[in-house]
Design a protein around this nucleic acid. Structure first.
Lengths: 339, 339
DNA sequence: AATAGAAACGTGCACGTGCACGGAATGAAA
DNA sequence: TTTCATTCCGTGCACGTGCACGTTTCTATT
């Protein structure tokens, strides 16, 4: 690997000049610059990462993470990934501040401002889907504070990267699993959180698309909304099962899986109903192990937490963006055996 | 984060002395050492990783990778992970040499010796299961050349880490999928590579264990060995299907999946037979997409290739071992939708 | 008490990069 | 020719660590 020093020697100039050319900060004669660029190209110069990070940590890096409070157990898992990366980055003299807030545009804006006043160098954000947030992200970008979105993306914003699921594909996969795990006439009920939330409707669309294309033996009987709430979910699912005794499959496209399963058990239908769900929080892990939930599709919360921070850190130290702006985590299927 | 310099100043000694104490290379008065250790503990000193890597690359690191030649397409995927990491590590002035050899103890020993004569600082190895190899690994360890095993582990050896599947668990998961994806009386045929190969028998044992415990509707009709060869696999599977017309499920526990599927299609049984297999090489990806293979369990070859090198590099630069000696890759289920 | 020898410790360089400061060369105007 | 400003470029330090070398202090022996 070529170093700046080597290039400088070959070009007969000093390291400083090479640095100016490579990071084009001007004040170099065109002829000299050309010569240096030529040599750099010939030697295939790539900046040494250890050197970059070392130089970058003159200023002790401060990163901020904003995600939703742990009313949602999913974010506990994301947090584990954040914690892991926090510890790792600590070894690079980089500190990570975490703020868990309610899912609320105003609070989110306030949290961002607070981080700015604390002079963080970059932010990982699970954005609320509002134009104010998108505008704020662009402001931050202009101020030189890069933002990485995690779990949920946001349109019309110059976030440097997104780390999370492809929700439509996850829905399709859920449909595929239900298709493979059922035979004969199937009457499927679908439980989603809310039709207002993009992630939920994306999954729903994917599911319907797959069923429609490949599995005509499955008929969608009813779609209900449980607001991601277990109590609500219990009652609505119970009502659904009573109203449609022919239902023999359920797809939980979002939260409230625990409450829904409880309703299935309360009706003693757990052997008659094939349940497909998402994620594998501790609360429902037992249901997966016992086969009450046949399969679940996970969005790798740990990876989301750790990777988003990693991307931000690399951007700030090495000035390096990931190849893909959209870093989709794999659609991860779990059944009783590999949960 | 505390630095050596800070500790030195607080202890009223020089950086060199602190270095000697922290890396206990002796020649420091007990009282001084104690004082330094105390301060280091109080400040929670952790060596800075960027500094470590920078210091380590005075000697240009050379790593060696030995895996089996691409007669086996699985290792092409592993190679992609190796290539990725190779490029990344290049940015740390670390070069990676790769050697693909036949699955043969003598050749493997020769390849190792060759790497040693080229003065590599560490080796990633897919080991042949032979005591000579284990002994060689221990020799290398004593010479200060650490070895990370990938894909297959080896007993009684002081490899610093293993990166690969838990084969028994993967087999159990295959059983679980077949159980979930079939109804009624099932007669299952099993095709493995060889009973001599530990990975294959581990998967088989896991599969049988799961079926025996949870899915009495599945009866294992016959177990055949195809030596991981597609031509062999085609003929044997064809014979199997002819001999047992009642077979309506197949588990391919190892290679030769392509040949086996071809036999199923040749018999026009693809709609009657539920096929579960492992891995998703390009060759069989079409079968997965078309639903001829209902599900496949992957061992994340890319991760195996990249992670093993990463562990080795971290060990050599930061002197850091992963928390777990056994780094199992997740049991990764794929169906048509998420392949 | 003198001296050798060992133990204990300090100093400086290397690793690769970024950046501030200052010096040298160049050109234009007086 | 001198003066001045601008462009261009070299030098040195910082970041954190490891290690070779050199120097000082202590202990033991004559």
């Amino acid at each position: 690997m070529a170093t700046i020093k080597e290039i400088a020697e070959l070009a007969g100039v000093s390291r400083g000049t090479v640095d100016r050319v490579l990071n084009n900060r001007g004040s170099v004669r065109a002829k000299t610059a050309e010569k240096i660029l030529e040599i750099a190209k010939a030697l295939d110069y790539k900046p040494n990462k250890a050197g970059l990070t070392l130089a970058a940590q003159k200023r002790r890096l401060k990163l901020g993470v904003i995600l939703f409070e742990n009313s949602n157990p999913f974010f506990d898992e994301v947090m584990k990934g954040v914690r892991y990366q926090q510890q790792r980055l600590n070894g690079y003299n980089c500190s990570v501040l975490v703020r868990q807030i309610a899912q609320n545009v105003q609070q989110q804006l306030a949290a961002i401002d607070d981080f700015v006043s604390q002079e963080v160098h970059g932010i990982v954000l699970v954005p609320c889907n509002a134009p104010e947030i998108a505008r704020k992200i662009n402001e931050l970008y202009d101020m030189g504070i890069p933002v990485v979105t995690a779990n949920t993306d946001i349109e019309h914003s110059r976030r440097i990267a997104y780390v999370g699921s492809n929700y439509f594909l996850a829905g399709e996969t859920a449909g595929g699993l239900m298709g493979l795990m059922t035979k004969g006439d199937i009457h499927a009920g679908i439980v989603i959180g809310s039709r207002q939330i993009l992630c939920h409707t994306d999954r729903l669309a994917g599911f319907q698309s797959c069923i429609g294309k490949k599995y005509p033996h499955i008929r969608i009987t009813s779609i209900i909304e449980n607001q991601d709430d277990d109590v609500e979910s219990f009652h609505l699912t119970e009502k659904l099962l009573q109203e449609y005794p022919q239902i023999n499959a359920l797809y939980f496209a979002a939260g409230g899986v625990y409450g829904g399963c409880k309703a299935v058990i309360a009706q003693n239908r757990q052997h008659a109903v094939t349940v497909i769900a998402h994620d594998k929080m501790d609360k429902i892990r037992g249901f997966i192990r016992d086969g009450i939930i046949s399969a679940t599709i996970c969005q790798q919360p740990f990876v989301q937490g750790s990777k988003s921070l990693d991307i931000l850190f690399n951007y700030l130290t090495a000035g390096e963006l990931p190849e893909k702006e959209l870093n989709f985590v794999a659609v991860d299927i779990r059944i009783a055996e590999n949960v």
